[in-house]
Design a protein around this nucleic acid. Sequence first.
RNA 1: GGAGAGGUGGCAGAGUGGUCGAAUGUACCUGACUCGAAAUCAGGCGUAGGUAUAUGCCUACCGUGGGUUCGAAUCCCACCCUCUCCGCCA
Length: 431
Amino acid sequence: MLDIQVLRSDLDGVAARLATRGFVLDTVRFGELEAARKSIQMRTQELQSKRNSSSKLIGQAKSRGEDTTTIMAEVALVGEELKQVEVQLIELQSELQAMLEGLPNMPHDSVPVGKSETDNIEVRRVGSIPQFGFAVKDHVELGENLGGLDFETAAKISGARFSVLKGGVARLHRALAQFMLDTHTDQHGYTEVYVPYLVNADSMRGTGQLPKFEEDLFRVPRQMGEEGEQNFYLIPTAEVPVTNMVRDEIVPLEQLPLKYVAHTPCFRSEAGSAGRDTRGLIRQHQFEKVELVQMVQPENSYAALELLLGHAETILQKLGLHYRVVRLCTGDIGFSSATTYDIEVWLPAQNTYREISSCSNFEAFQARRLQARFRNAAGKPELLHTLNGSGLAVGRTLVAILENNQLSDGSIAIPEILQPYMGGMKVLSAG
RNA sequence: GGAGAGGUGGCAGAGUGGUCGAAUGUACCUGACUCGAAAUCAGGCGUAGGUAUAUGCCUACCGUGGGUUCGAAUCCCACCCUCUCCGCCA
């Protein structure tokens, strides 16, 4: 959520910034709502003030045993108008709030201006494209030949976009997650957290998935009380529960930065992506991810983003995978993000780079919704900056290992760093 | 699932219809005393919003939502959460 104070003081400036990401801010509508809000709010507070002082007088008069009929008649009139005006104020404020919640974050000045992913800027390539002396197979063929990947059974159990992993492939998947967690906790200073996979609507609102992107989520209806219904939502990323840990908190300065890592399943409805990436593990309703989340002081957030990006890159480097880092342009960054780097891993069977991590600085956008603050050096509460990044998407890392480490006979060379997690296994082969 | 207790400021903890944004203690900040510290004394110390010459004035907030009332932390209703005991359970 953007700061309404900034909209009030520099509406055109905000509109111009949002325009770079293809968002049209209705400045006229906002101006009207604000003007109405201002006059109604002032009137409301004036009436409340009158009611409060009159009620006080009634109390005093009654305690002296005096007659209060005149003043009570007066305050009754105030009460009537107040009731009407309060209703109007609530309507106006919820309309303003809805408008505000619908506004995406403002891109940082450094973000390249562009319309779509074709305008993204490649920052660097690390490693080199592996060469094969044979025709490469894709991860589906490799996994199935190894007896470790079964989409048909998954379709029977659940449906499309699910998978069953077996044997060595399942273990490799687990090994990857363990390796990532260990690296981030032991070498990068993150605290491991285990968090709920079902969260409430407030949490989804806090990180920006609601109200705009409900169709991307799996909703779990839940009966509350007599007829009340309240939803749980399956998390689409650990960002949601982990970032919400600081919701409505004021963190002492000396505890910053907060650095958390969580390994969770992620659930996405993939509404609107029908027909895309239907083959293989690339786009699933359920997948595993190791997520890095940081809460930092505003002045440190861009330095923290570079570090966090480096933490994610470390995983790829240790696994010996070739990748590139891409700076997303204004037209391609996510709703809540001020700046995003994507890390794309090389997939030889597709002869292209595919996203395996996305690292973003949200500045105070999430923190404002969350009321996530810290006590600054002056002792005053101030909004935190929140950041997160995949470190990494486990399923896609598995895909990358299978494809990049395949041998001519269809077996898979296990990266040295993973071998301890695989009971010393060096090559994964069928049977 | 059954029975009970409770949710108030950073923490503890009063407050059951009127001057209560809230006693008191504690923590913290400032000052006095002191060579310095401790102790003691005095003062200060919540969050958000509105207005704007304002160190000013006003509004809201006592788990959440609704209701009663001129007036609600206090009364009524619903819900959420926490704790204790019993039962069941991975």
